[in-house]
Design a protein around this nucleic acid. Structure first.
Length: 292
DNA sequence: GGCCAGGTATGGT
DNA sequence: ACCATACATGGC
């Protein structure tokens, strides 16, 4: 995709494959805030503000390289969409979410976030993550003016809260996770955090796809769906197809059945969309959750 | 107030 | 291996 990098700004003039509202609202990220044409995002300990004009979007940040990768800017999504649009069943979802991009996010943040996401609603997931960030994450000075009323920043002292590191969350007790609103997931989270090591996180990228899956499944609170989300959103493993309640509906629309066997659904949809499965999943998810 | 939420762990066949 | 059930808790 075409874009221009400056000192503290990236300008994207190709609005056919970058729509910040779609990117943030398609369910892959929780720590963001949108107010009109201004959006703000926190990933790990990094912050960016995105302003949308009628002919372009501008990403304002002190770490250009990080968000260039984060927003997956080097990839040509028009080509991906074109390939996938051959599938008549998927085409309407692509048309609807034309500006979606799959983000490259932090592995540890994805593990924590998607363990919390299980059998939970998005508002509460977001609240829990912001609570944990506030309690255990580092406070960082805002590089640019924040949005008024944003839940992500402490307006009084002009700072935002980074997502906690593994080291920081190792200090959290089961009760801390209960206080964060994790409910019965608190014990899973405690167990997983205590067992996780930096080495496992740092060498994860070197594992084969199957090794990645097996490692994630060994963590408490991580089943196949959560593992697929982590693989897709942390290391861009687009050969996976996370199946949740929405994808269940998608599959039942496609086949006119009432199948609930998620393992089977995931296998069939992965066969259908191949290396582009992860992309297809996001187009489906956004369309169904928003419209249907 | 009762139902629901981007599922997973666990204990039965 | 496959199926059923329990699971906390805020949001609506």
């Amino acid at each position: 995709m075409n874009y221009r990098k400056f000192n503290k700004k990236i300008i994207i003039e190709d609005t056919t494959q970058f729509d910040i509202n779609q990117i943030l609202d398609c369910g892959q990220i929780f720590r963001y805030f949108i107010n009109g044409n201004v959006a703000e995002v926190i990933s790990g300990n990094k912050y960016a503000k995105i302003i949308t004009y009628h002919d372009r979007a501008e990403i304002l940040t002190s770490d250009i390289e990080y968000f260039e990768h984060f927003f997956d800017l080097a990839r040509d999504y028009n080509q991906i969409k074109q390939q996938l649009s051959d599938d008549q069943f998927l085409a309407p979802s692509i048309k609807f979410g034309y500006g979606i991009r799959i983000l490259n996010q932090q592995l540890f943040e994805m593990i924590v976030s998607f363990i919390i996401s299980a059998n939970n609603n998005i508002k509460r997931i977001r609240n829990s993550l912001n609570y944990l960030s506030k309690q255990f994450g580092s406070k960082i000075d805002l590089p640019v003016d924040c949005i008024k009323g944003s839940p992500l920043v402490d307006e009084l002292c002009g700072r935002y809260y980074a997502f906690p590191t593994l080291e920081q969350l190792k200090h959290a007790s089961v009760q801390d996770f209960v206080d964060a609103g994790l409910g019965y997931r608190a014990e899973y989270m405690y167990d997983t955090i205590q067992k996780l090591t930096h080495k496992e996180l740092n060498t994860f990228i070197e594992l084969s796809e199957d090794q990645q899956l097996q490692f994630l499944l060994s963590l408490k609170g991580v089943g196949e769906k959560v593992a697929h989300c982590i693989m897709l959103f942390a290391v861009h493993q687009t050969t996976v197809f996370p199946v949740d309640t929405w994808i269940n509906k998608v599959y039942n629309d496609l086949t006119n059945t009432t199948c609930t066997n998620r393992k089977m659904i995931s296998r069939i949809l992965t066969d259908r969309y191949g290396k582009l499965s992860g992309y297809a999943q996001q187009y489906f998810f956004y369309y169904y959750r928003t419209v249907k």
